[in-house]
Amino acid sequence: MTATDDLISRLSADLRPVRRLAPPMRRAAGWLGFATLLIAVAVAVFGLRPDFAERLRDASEVVQWVASAATGVLATIAAFQLSLPDRSPRWILLPLPAAAVWVATLGLGCLAEVARVGPAALWPGFSPGCMAFVLGLGLPLAGSLVWMLRYAVAIRPVPVAVMGGLAGAALSAAGLWLFHELEGAAEALIWHAGMTLVVVGILLAFGRSWERREAEHGFTGA
């Protein structure tokens, strides 16, 4: 018997029933529902930002908010699609137009502040209160998404991690905008880029060991 035949016999002997993953769109919808609920709870607890009505009249802010929300939704869909072996790698293109608009509006915001305040505008100020808001929303969003996508590390680790990171950052940006004002565009840009990198890092660093451990203890695909 060859080593491969032997391996097949062992894998068959080791087989346990698995709970099939729900279709990717349903999983994406489930996570987006969780994210919406989390944001709604945060808004209910902290209330809408004081200048909310005023900000709604600013077309560029509204465009930025819509672009960040759209980036979050589309990147979530892309991440769940890409996490399956037989789906097209072209799903990675889905959130790019919205992400381009979002990043461009953030970049323009930075430039406008530099023109107004000078180069000091590029140096973000991190207040502990602000950090608590950003982490309080960002970490549950990013953490839950990483957990749902952990099985993808065996197939397309980097594209899935990047899409997951983008989704987490974009939705936490859209959520934060409703109830908390970041000090400036540079700070927002740094936070969102940081959040993306954190998700990418966590998924790449721990995803494989989580996935292996689950494989050893019976993968349920929760």
């Binding site: 993953l21 072996p85 099985y151 494989a215």
Partner: peptide, 30 residues
């Protein structure tokens, strides 16, 4: 053999409404 191990770990990700062959090919190529 690596492919067989990955197939084993990713059993839950196969969707029976789709053909199996592309799923297997994608894992093998990876």
């Amino acid at each position: 053999q690596d492919t067989l191990l990955t197939v084993h770990r990713m059993l839950a990700t196969y969707d029976p409404s789709r053909p199996l062959r592309p799923w297997l090919i994608a894992i093998t190529e990876r």
